[in-house]
Structures are given as C-alpha cells and as structure tokens.
C-alpha cells in the first residue's frame, strides 16, 4: 500500500482536536486520553481499571460525545443476561414473526461499566461481539457497524460477588488503562468547575464516525521498519523468558502492540512507527496480558509488579539506532 498517501498530519490534527475536547472535561489525564484515542484509532477496545469516582465513565462518555456517533452504556450486574447486552428476538404481532430488538451493544462507543460484575456468560456475549464486531442471533449474523469500541471498566479493589475476567478474555482488550488520582492542581480545577451531570457536559463532536473509520482503515498502512519490528519482537521475547511471568505475551499481543504503535504514529502525525512509539505502549498493551508466577492476591500490587518488570524490560532491550 502506498504509504505516502496517508494524510498523517490531518489525522493528527483531528485527533488532537478530540484530545483537547476531552481534556476540557478530564483534567490532567492526557496520557490516558491519548491511549484511549490510540485504542479508538486501532479499532481496539479499552479496559479502564481503577477505583470508582476517578472519571472512567466520564472519559468514555466524553470520547463518545467528541465523536459524532452513537453511545450506549451497559451497567453490568450479576443478573444481567446476554440478551440484555446484545438484544433479543421478540414476536411482532404486526409482522407476524420474530423481529430482533437490538441491544445496547449495537452502538459505536459502548461503555461496559463494571464488566466484572456480570456472569461469565454475559461477559462472553459481549466479548464475542467485541472480537468479531458482529452478533449471532437465531442463526443470523448481525453486524454491529463501525466505528465500534467497547470501553469497559472494572474496579480492582471490590471483589465482592464479581467474576474476574479470565486471561483469555483480557487478551481481547487492546489496552488496559488507569486513571489514577488527579493532581492537586487538576483537582482544584475540577472543584472550581463544580460537578457536572453527564447531560450537562457540553462537548461538541469534532470527528465524524465516517472520518474515524477512514482513519482506522489507514492504520495498517502505517510503515513499520524491520529494525522496529525486531525491537518489538525482542520486547515480546523478553516477556517470554522472564522468570517472574507465568507465561509470556502471545502472538496476539505482539500484533496488538504493532497495531497500537501504528495508531500512535498516526496520532502523532507520522506515517511510520519509531521505536519510541513501541516503548511507550508496552505497559498499556502488555501489562494486562501477563500474569505473575507468584500471585499475591492483591490486584493493584500485582499490577504494579507486572508494570515494574515490563519497565525493566523496556530499559533493558536496546532500541535500534
């Protein structure tokens, strides 16, 4: 594919517009915002894992509003059924037959709030939709449409009556993100602004869904030079030989890292990937796919340990010159 036809600067400008739009509401979380946008560009899904009240839902909401596209929110609970997510066929008297009533998953940005509270059955229904971008119902396959991005959230502390996502399903998320507590200054800003209900958030869309799908289609065309691919593979290889991990990153993980790096390059207005893109994305793309050999039982502690080891790997593996 001709790479010099990629309008990288235009994509950068559009995404910068989205970023600025979201940053007006989510203060001081530029890294998280950027990562969410990378996910969006890379046609991936994001899992935001953090404590309640740190702006997970707001971030997903702002993302959807910045994009001129549909948004739906599913609050996951233990009694949520798959049909509550993907929809259900009901008998239509006028039609004299069953018609499919689309569930909330048929949207462009889907916020799956507290995904770990639903039963594995419901989770897997969503995850299948995420993976394929389609829903199978009554022997029919229904496309969800594009753009499609699931932003799932989960609380890493409160495990009461939850069903933690198994590794295989964690792998479906392109990134796992953290919001973290806001800085003093940023929180001052938030306080000054007063609490806003979602409906009161005044954000105008800056990118249309059609534009975004065009951008997404260009991501695979972003050029990755061999030395950068080697660098990426060396990092992946290092996770596989790392004694602390129960298993290294999968081939899907390396594909995910490449795609995310391509999206980040585009976000920065480049039509090619540089090693720094890869290095920056190692933590958000790989951390949730790796499991420590000695589990401590504390999710946050484990997360920090995994991220620490990954940080060391990034430091250790030499970048191409």
């Amino acid at each position: 594919m001709e790479t010099d036809t990629i309008p990288a600067p235009r994509i950068r400008d559009a995404m910068e517009g989205m970023k600025a739009n979201i940053a007006r509401v989510i203060k001081g979380k530029n890294a998280a915002i950027e990562n969410v946008l990378v996910c969006l560009l890379a046609s991936g899904h994001a899992l935001i894992e953090d404590l309640p009240g740190l702006g997970k839902t707001t971030l997903a909401y702002c993302l959807a509003r910045s994009l001129d596209s549909g948004f739906s929110r599913i609050q996951f609970t233990s009694d949520l059924l798959p049909s509550d997510v993907i929809g259900v066929s009901i008998y239509d008297d006028r039609e004299r037959g069953f018609t499919f009533k689309h569930g909330p998953v048929f949207s462009n940005i889907v916020l799956a709030d507290e995904i770990n509270r639903a039963t594995p059955k419901t989770q897997s229904a969503l995850l299948e939709a995420m993976d394929r971008g389609k829903v199978s119902q009554d022997g029919k396959t229904l496309p969800i449409g594009r753009p499609f991005m699931v932003v799932a959230t989960q609380n890493p502390v409160d495990y009461e009556s939850t069903f933690p996502l198994p590794e295989s399903q964690m792998d479906r998320f392109l990134m796992r993100l953290h919001m973290g507590y806001p800085d003093f200054k940023d929180e001052m800003e938030i306080l000054r602004g007063g609490f806003l209900r979602y409906d009161e958030i005044d954000i105008e869309p800056v990118v249309t869904g059609g534009e975004l799908t065009d951008f997404q289609d260009l991501v695979p065309a972003v050029f990755v030079e061999d030395s950068v691919l080697e660098y990426l593979l060396r990092i992946i290889g290092a996770t596989r030989t790392e004694a602390e991990f129960r298993a290294g990153a999968s081939a899907r993980a390396s594909l995910a890292l490449r795609t995310a790096a391509q999206a980040l390059a585009l976000l920065r207005g480049r039509s090619f990937v540089i090693p720094e893109d890869v290095a920056q994305l190692v933590l958000p793309v790989l951390a949730h796919r790796l499991v420590l050999r000695r589990a401590s039982g504390d999710a946050i502690e484990e997360r920090h340990a995994v991220e620490g080891i990954l940080g060391q790997i990034v430091e250790r593996v030499p970048q191409p010159v």
Partner: peptide, 8 residues
C-alpha cells in the same frame, strides 16, 4: 529517513 518508508 531512519524509520519511514523509502518512497516517503
């Protein structure tokens, strides 16, 4: 030049 495609 270092990482981009040659034609660019």
């Amino acid at each position: 030049i270092r990482y981009g495609p040659v034609d660019s």
